[in-house]
């Protein structure tokens, strides 16, 4: 309420125009450079600070919209799981914390699954919502990863998981610990089908999440500045009794230490993924082109269901679709004996 709404008569008010839809916080401060950010410009810049390039948190639905082709995707419902199996209570009941987060985010738990295409390639994305109890992984999140993996296998699509999580959800005790092997069982289903499993590490990815599915991807991408690590900074500082460098556990630090393949700006993620999928998914592409069924690789999918033999292997598919590639390969193979001795000398 302000003087306008309080003291001006309704008729005049309607002329002046009541501004109902104005958000409370038109401006916010960048945590990194303290520059002021106007909400419209910030949104247009994908929630990346336009002063310093700091990647701020982004709403899951906005993230999905900027990743999928034409911003179009279909949500895959997350399966229901028993809530609060331990009847956990600290200063608050876990059941109440869950309800509060569900009301705030209008989602069942900290993970959202979507299917669609990126650069024309079929993709299933499972994205964490940090706004939901710090993106912590309990049974529901684990079940979400399982569901995403199963959907990827069924659709013959790539799986992309985007963690933003403090780690395991303490309120589910050892059940949350068991989501570590569980989530790895899930992503292994995708890997064993020969489909790409890509992880996009975002701020933050720590604890039990970083120490499970998030670190076993075929390819690891990370957003600039994202905090990624196992133990918390404070715990480490207390243990080793030294002050850690500012860049410790950042995406760039992990890149330097060989834990991620590349640090990719939010604006470049879609293009990067599109290129990677294009390079990786030869089998589906060959199958799809051969079958000519408009990207519906239903035959490829059923072939894999029938078992591994001949029809599914890359060589077999290549024979059908692109014999000239095989010829080239054979040519390379014959030149190998000559190359080997040279390699030996070089390595000495």
């Amino acid at each position: 309420m302000n003087w306008l709404t309080n003291f001006i008569r309704p008729r005049i008010r309607s002329i002046v125009g009541e501004q109902k839809d104005v958000p409370d916080n038109l401006w916010q401060k960048c945590e990194a450079c303290e520059g002021m950010l106007f909400h419209k410009e910030l949104k247009a810049n994908l929630n990346v600070c336009y002063h310093c390039g700091n990647h701020l948190a982004i709403d899951v639905k906005e993230r999905l919209a900027i990743m999928f082709d034409e911003g179009k995707y279909e949500r895959v419902p997350t399966p229901a799981v028993p809530h609060d199996p331990l009847k956990f209570k600290d200063s608050k009941k876990y059941a109440d914390r869950l309800k509060a987060s569900q009301a705030k985010t209008r989602e069942l738990d900290a993970i959202q699954i979507a299917r669609g295409t990126i650069g024309g390639q079929k993709v299933v994305i499972a994205a964490f919502d940090f706004a939901f109890m710090g993106g912590s992984m309990g049974t529901a999140v684990g079940e979400g990863i399982v569901k995403a993996a199963e959907t990827a296998v069924k659709d013959h699509a790539a799986l992309i998981v985007i963690p933003a999580s403090g780690g395991a959800r303490m309120q589910e005790g050892a059940l949350s610990l068991m989501q570590m092997p569980r989530s790895i069982v899930a992503v292994n289903m995708v890997k064993e089908e020969g489909l790409p499993y890509i992880v996009l590490l975002t701020n933050p990815t720590t604890g039990g999440v970083s120490a499970s599915f998030a670190m076993v991807g075929d390819i690891h991408l990370a957003e600039p500045g994202a905090m990624i690590g196992f133990a918390g900074r404070r715990v480490i500082e207390e243990t080793v009794r030294e002050t850690l460098p500012k860049e410790f556990q950042t995406a760039e630090y992990l890149l330097d230490h060989g834990m991620v393949d590349m640090v990719v700006k939010r604006a470049d993620i879609k293009e990067t993924l599109s290129r990677l999928l294009d390079l990786l998914m030869i089998r589906t592409k060959v199958g799809g082109a051969k079958l000519g069924n408009g990207g519906k690789n239903s035959n490829t999918a059923s072939a894999s269901k029938n078992g591994k033999p001949s029809g599914r292997g890359p060589v077999a598919l290549l024979k059908k679709a692109a014999p000239e590639i095989l010829k080239k390969k054979a040519a390379n193979a014959t030149s190998e004996p000559n190359a080997k001795p040279a390699n030996k000398i070089a390595s000495r």
């Binding site: 970083s210 120490a211 670190m215 990624i228 690590g229 243990t239 410790f248 230490h257």
Partner: peptide, 11 residues
Amino acid sequence: PGRGAEERGQA
């Protein structure tokens, strides 16, 4: 939870 452990990829 040590510095070196993190650098060498504890997770």
